[in-house]
Design a protein around this nucleic acid. Sequence first.
DNA 1: TCGACGGATTGATAAATGTCAATCCAATGA
DNA 2: TCATTGGATTGACATTTATCAATCCGTCGA
Lengths: 231, 231
Amino acid sequence: MRAEETAALRGLRLFEGIAEPTFTDLVAAGYLQFFPPGVTLIRASDPADFLHVVIEGVVELYAATAGRETTMELVRPVGAFILAAVLSDQVYLQSARTLTRARILMIPAERVRRWMAQDAAFMSAITVELARGYRQAIKALKNQKLRTAAERLANWLIIVAAEQGTPGAVEIDIEKRVLASRLGMTPENLSRAFATLAGHGAQTRGTHIDITDPAALRAFANPDPLIDGPE
Amino acid sequence: MRAEETAALRGLRLFEGIAEPTFTDLVAAGYLQFFPPGVTLIRASDPADFLHVVIEGVVELYAATAGRETTMELVRPVGAFILAAVLSDQVYLQSARTLTRARILMIPAERVRRWMAQDAAFMSAITVELARGYRQAIKALKNQKLRTAAERLANWLIIVAAEQGTPGAVEIDIEKRVLASRLGMTPENLSRAFATLAGHGAQTRGTHIDITDPAALRAFANPDPLIDGPE
DNA sequence: TCGACGGATTGATAAATGTCAATCCAATGA
DNA sequence: TCATTGGATTGACATTTATCAATCCGTCGA
């Protein structure tokens, strides 16, 4: 792994403040692998053998039941996923696949659990990360239960515009059908939601959205820090 | 607190295996209080000052935005709630109110954080509990995104029949409008969902449901351990 | 015993969302 | 350059869910 990537890894909340030997060993024990797009990394109901860290590319966490499927989360660098299953030595609740070419660091679950017991700072970092993930999931549930599809899209636009550092515009870098699934709707419905937002300050043209009237968009979206806040 | 209640508290996953002095001090530091029904215990966006433990009664966790409200979870004895906010010293994402007369043990957040840093077993128990809560939230999100209202009700019936130890029947001990909100629908829609299930092996009469044809109910519900499993 | 109250149910209707089918369109490779 | 391909969009329609109003019904207190 390149030095700059090791440094980026160090920046993970999960590795914040942990002892150098712990970090070094965890990384050394990990397998760093390239994957092409569309590869299934883990399958729901499999035992959690590895903690996965996305070094490069985009990974989709998804879930399915009774022939239906939905996107649960998109993980980008540098982000870890499926921590909870690894910790309690349980099966995965979600499946994961690469959306793009991706580089993934896979750390054996057993090694994570061992260091957790030995390095108090690591344990503490894990607790913080778990609490964050938990709260994120609660927010996602609120988002889904309390808002319509168009409102979810509007709030997503506001969040992503901020993340991308372009208050007046959003560039979509994933397929719209994946975005639709993440936002809990069908692709057709997403198209219509975009059309609805055209009347509320957001003009869509392909993968580019111009937020021409931020105030109108916010009025429609009703952003709520207890749902949309980054934390 | 009565001895049997202290014993019940000890049975909480959160206090499993922790040192006696830790447990004793946490309980001693806590305020044990009675509340009548309908009392708001905590409000979303307030700072998390206490870890709450339900000793007796039923507590509803709920969330609201833009004039809409939804029930997130029902907490029964002996159960702790809003652990994640307490740990990271953040605001609550959910509000809580008593549904019945209730007895609540409130442990100062600061005390929880202090013992967490000093008692490795406590920290470990917290991690396990957090992971459990996280996974529970993921399951709730899958339930909401992947199922229709009637399916959610059917699966809820199957779960609760097992919990109540009566495979052929379910007794509802909360208001139906609260149940409707928990399952992500309106009270009217819940009534109709019950009517639908009458054709799939579940006969409702007031607060009592007879599961006359378990196989038919399961066929309709499509229970999935990765959503409905107790874990 | 009788009202009164609040939640539950039912019916009618509207809004939101999903499904199916037919293009449209942009990226890709021959 | 052009044909192919897969995702995106649009229209028509079905299903699901919510809303509004009326009524039912069990509980509780006078």
